[in-house]
Amino acid sequence: MSDSTHAAHTDGEHNPYVAHHFDNMGQQAGAAKLGMWLFLATELLMFSGLFLAYFICRMWYPDMVLGAHEYLSKTAGGINTCVLLFSSWTMAMAVRSAQVGKPGSKEDAAKIKKYLLLTLLCAGVFLVVKYFEYSAKFEHGMLPGKFYTAHLHGYEIEGLPHIFFGIYFIMTGLHGVHVLVGMGIMIWIYLRASRGEFSHQNYAGVENTGLYWHLVDLVWIFLFPLLYLVK
């Protein structure tokens, strides 16, 4: 991958961002990136448990899942999918800006900050849309498990829809928590970028944030068709 080649020309000269226990930036950035990939693997595995629960629910009660999913808003889900896809692009641009940025250049830092802000904005839009979706579900009593009261609001869904909505809320809820955490990390990276920390000498932080954000997108790319587009 590109990290070693990018970092190679900074070896030898003194790079202030290399921690004491590493020999050079190549080693440090390589470690950071490997660590991030492993972390992403654990995230995927954690979600995989929920995906398994989803598939088992769908296998047990195919008709119920079909009936219940009609009540999820395809428009809202679709908009959010587009928003997240766009945010993946802005994030990638932020990473790119850091990789080619010159140390100490105000302009380059501003570029990183611009793309981070755009990404943050997308994340915000995503959560707002999600908020409206959730409130609609709350109003109609389409809630998980024992809180499910949609039948009292005049919605007749065949079978055991409380299981479907349980899974829906857990999966999208956990995903939403990841979006929130991602926003927190981006704010932190934004502040560091303001201090001019990132450049081609040191960009592992931005890169890892990017990797994390792509994972958050990726999970949504699976959630959307599985939950909203069953038919």
Partner: peptide, 16 residues
């Protein structure tokens, strides 16, 4: 929340 995926009374499965 009593979502019920592990609870046979609610249509779930403890073996899961």
């Amino acid at each position: 929340l009593g979502i019920g995926i592990f609870d046979p009374a609610m249509g779930g499965d403890p073996v899961l």
